[in-house]
Write a protein that binds this DNA or RNA. Structure first.
Lengths: 171, 171
DNA sequence: TATTGTTATACTCTATAACTATA
DNA sequence: TATAGTTATAGAGTATAACAATA
């Protein structure tokens, strides 16, 4: 097991393999709601921490503020969130989730539940809990912030250009 | 737990969170060997299945053949693999791993072991085995091919441009 | 006419550094 | 002079469709 291919049946590789698959499957599911994982994460942040300036939001997500501009443009266009001028400082925007954003977040929650059930379909309820608790301990040990995707720095901004999504094969 | 943010403490989200983190951490580790995850996966494939044509390799990895061109150029440049003309069909190349490629694969194996230990440092041996077996069952249920990264379609070809890697913060 | 590997094109995403308007 | 948000630029990656050589 030393000169052999690394990690075929060992946890770290399985984690990236299954984790990548889960991320792809989730992105595909919520594409039906016209949102990306980035949108979903931002909606969640805004629900929990509104109001937030763009820089505060960027800091919380671990991404550069300039990347947020396009994403927030999309979200405003889609009616999910709004930029409101701050009374105190005319340079900053207070970001707030809209009623439609809250509704979309609820729908995302439902889709997530389906996704969660599908991904862990092979496990019993008890095993699901075991898995959750092991993963929570790893996440804590690795310094991951609950609810924040570490790939935020490079999560696609827009949904993949449609053609590929219709290709039947994946998931 | 219904209108609340999706998946904070539930397995599917934890899987993508921890899985993404693990993938990033591994990529960073093997960057010290001047290889990317894509290179590592190809080295492993070539060790197991040499010789292989480019189209056969692309099919096994689930990626488009044209993407392989640049990656194999790099690997030949780095002396990890070679394109040998086929005796039977002058259109095809037989890909073979070199002695240096085998040596690099051994080193990757060692780095992987460190990585695996680091990622699962929070767990006991028994828990590690439990996690492995749960993940293997999920992977099998989801139709994932053992040892093949589902993100192969969009794994970065070259190591990230250096500057970012030296930025201290991640991992 | 089909297939292998390659190249060319157009498109997306990203990071960085200007830039503006405020403070 | 510093900060919030924006825009511009340049670079990297990808997918797709041509393409040349060979079958």
């Amino acid at each position: 097991m030393n000169s052999s291919p690394p990690g075929k049946g060992s946890p770290a590789f399985l984690l990236t393999q299954v984790g990548t698959h889960a991320a792809q499957a989730f992105a595909k599911r919520i594409a039906a709601l016209s949102v990306t994982p980035a949108h979903a994460g931002i909606l969640r942040m805004l629900k929990m921490h509104s109001p937030l300036s763009q820089r505060e939001l960027a800091a919380k997500l671990g991404m550069h503020a300039s990347r947020l501009v396009a994403i927030l443009d999309e979200m405003e266009e889609g009616g999910l969130a709004v930029r409101e001028p701050s009374a105190k400082d005319r340079r900053v925007y207070q970001l707030r989730i809209t009623e439609k954003g809250l509704e979309t977040l609820r729908e995302i929650g439902l889709v997530y539940q389906e996704h969660n059930a599908a991904i862990t379909a092979a496990l019993s309820d008890e095993e699901r809990e075991t898995l959750t608790s092991l993963l929570e301990r790893i996440a804590a040990d690795q310094g991951l912030v609950p609810g924040v995707h570490p790939g935020y720095q490079s999560l696609p901004v827009k949904a993949r250009s449609g053609k590929a999504a219709g290709k039947a094969s994946r998931d």
